[in-house]
Design a protein around this nucleic acid. Structure first.
Length: 485
DNA sequence: CACTGAGTAAACAAGT
DNA sequence: GACTTGTTTACTCAGT
């Protein structure tokens, strides 16, 4: 221990961390595995979803049970060529595309990009899409006693992520740096009966465990994560997704349990979803948030069941949940990086949810300026998805109106030991909210938002760039007229 | 432009 | 003395 270590380092109150956990993972992309999914399969998504949710809920995937469920989940990942788009970390350099990857098809640039990103042979050369905090967290969580010495943390990382075997040794320094810096990790008094040599055992601070779980969950890891389908010409800025879901990439146990259907999205979905995201209309295509929380899966299933029971011909009857003021309060892993967030209290859908362009209009009625948008959707789960979309837009509006910088809306890693700040510093959103309006409880709302988001993701967000841009103004006018009538 | 998160490098001290 | 562990600082970069 350094002589200059401030005594407050380990003794800092974790209060701030409980309220404003941070986004930890830079945007990452990963390879595409489900390349051959058919449209017909996508059509069955909703049905499969229902079963998936049932399974998830029945199994009550609490906490990181999904992580423990199968270590080959991580192995699959580490060998699957999932790649980072972080210019700093991606061994490919600043361009997210691997030089070894094949060029995207001219006819299908987005999918081609997705395909090329998936390099099964490059796993050991790809940095895992987890921050060191997440890696450490997973390592410790994977330990029987939930505590590990640094050496074993190294070993776990090396075991599961061969990338580090050949990586510069600095990553160990980074691990130690994270352990020391991150309040989520705390040293455990070494049991003298244990001869682990020098050093301490590291464990997860229970008070921050949730933060780490959230950070881990939000890591976009599966082939349809936002970063994946980024067209080569799109800017490198990838809005961060905040998933409250276990990894549903191809190695995910949950994925396998459901025959892989969860990730099987038609090609068009990928393409257009990315297109939408590149337009900052759909900042994210969220992985299916099969949440560890049973209530959340219930909410998802409920919303889906609602839709299924109504049929596709009446999506407009779907009653979206009341919008929330801010999603960032409850789960601090906000999607603050998402450029557009919406909160809708009403979703107006066309009589036919699947018109030629699969476009629906979303109208936002909230305390913020309505911003009707035409949301291209791929499938019939349009209303729930539209709800999510609108919520995203509202978020964006709120964010733009308040606390500046993006990730986590200015909250600054409250779990970071020597960066802990006061509440006023870590919760700018709360401050804004307090200054704005009192808001209703949003726990249930959160569930529904995530449900909507997952439905959106699973349905596959199909966006037509031109349609969006060209129809926005028109849609606004039409919706205003409709309201008047 | 300022701020933040994350990664990295480096220095240093202490323990083994 | 070499190595490991732990802490801290400083810096860069991406994103907003």
């Amino acid at each position: 221990m350094g002589p200059t270590m401030p005594p407050s380092k380990k003794a800092q109150s974790p209060s701030s961390g409980a309220s404003a956990s941070q986004g930890m993972s830079p945007p990452y992309r990963q390879g595409d595995a489900a390349t051959a999914a058919s449209e017909a399969e996508a059509a069955d998504l909703s049905l499969s979803l229902s079963a998936s949710f049932s399974k998830a809920e029945d199994e009550e995937l609490t906490s990181l049970s999904w992580l423990h469920e199968s270590t080959d989940l991580l192995n699959s990942f580490s060998h699957s060529g999932l790649r980072s788009v972080s210019p700093l970390q991606d061994p490919d350099g600043q361009h997210p595309r691997s030089p070894s990857s094949s060029s995207p098809s001219p006819d299908d640039p987005l999918l081609g990009d997705a395909h090329s990103a998936y390099d099964l042979a490059a796993g050991a050369n790809r940095k895992p899409p987890y921050s060191f905090s997440c890696l450490i967290f997973m390592a410790i969580e994977d330990a029987p006693n939930k505590r590990l010495p640094v050496k074993d943390i190294y070993g776990w990382i090396l075991e599961h992520f061969p990338y580090f075997a050949n990586a510069p040794t600095g990553w160990k320094n980074s691990v130690r740096h994270n352990l020391s810096l991150n309040k989520c990790f705390k040293k455990v008094d070494k049991d003298r009966s244990q001869s682990i040599g020098k050093g301490s055992l590291w464990s997860i601070d229970p008070e921050y465990r949730h933060n780490l779980i959230q950070a881990l969950k939000k890591t976009p890891y599966h082939p349809y994560s936002p970063g994946l389908a980024t067209p080569p010409t799109s800017p490198p800025t990838l809005p961060q997704t905040f998933h409250h879901s276990p990894p549903l990439w191809s190695g995910s146990p949950l994925f396998r349990k459901n025959g892989g259907v969860l990730l099987q999205v038609p090609r068009g979905v990928i393409q257009n979803g990315a297109r939408v995201r590149s337009q900052a209309l759909f900042p994210v295509i969220r992985p299916l948030p099969v949440s560890p929380v049973g209530s959340r899966t219930s909410a998802i299933r409920s919303s889906l069941g609602d839709y299924l029971s109504r049929g596709q011909d009446s999506p407009s009857r779907y009653s979206p949940p009341p919008c929330s003021e801010d999603l960032q309060d409850d789960h601090t892993y906000s999607t603050a990086k998402s450029p557009s967030r919406l909160c809708s209290s009403q979703v107006a859908a066309p009589s036919s949810p699947l018109d030629d362009d699969d476009i629906i209009a979303v109208e936002i009625q909230s305390d913020v300026k309505p911003e009707p948008r035409e949301i291209p959707l791929d499938s019939h789960v349009t209303t729930a998805a539209a709800t999510y979309i609108s919520q995203q837009a509202l978020r964006g509006q709120r964010r733009s109106s308040g606390a500046g910088a993006g990730t986590l809306a200015g909250s600054s890693l409250p779990w970071t030991k020597n960066r802990a700040r006061g509440i006023s510093d870590t919760l700018p959103l709360k401050k804004r909210r307090a200054a704005a309006v009192e808001k209703p409880p949003e726990s249930d709302d959160e569930e529904m938002k995530e449900a909507a988001g997952s439905l959106l993701h699973l349905a596959g967000v199909r966006a037509c760039l031109n349609n969006i841009t060209n129809r926005t103004a028109k849609g606004q006018k039409e919706q205003k007229d409709a309201l008047r009538n």
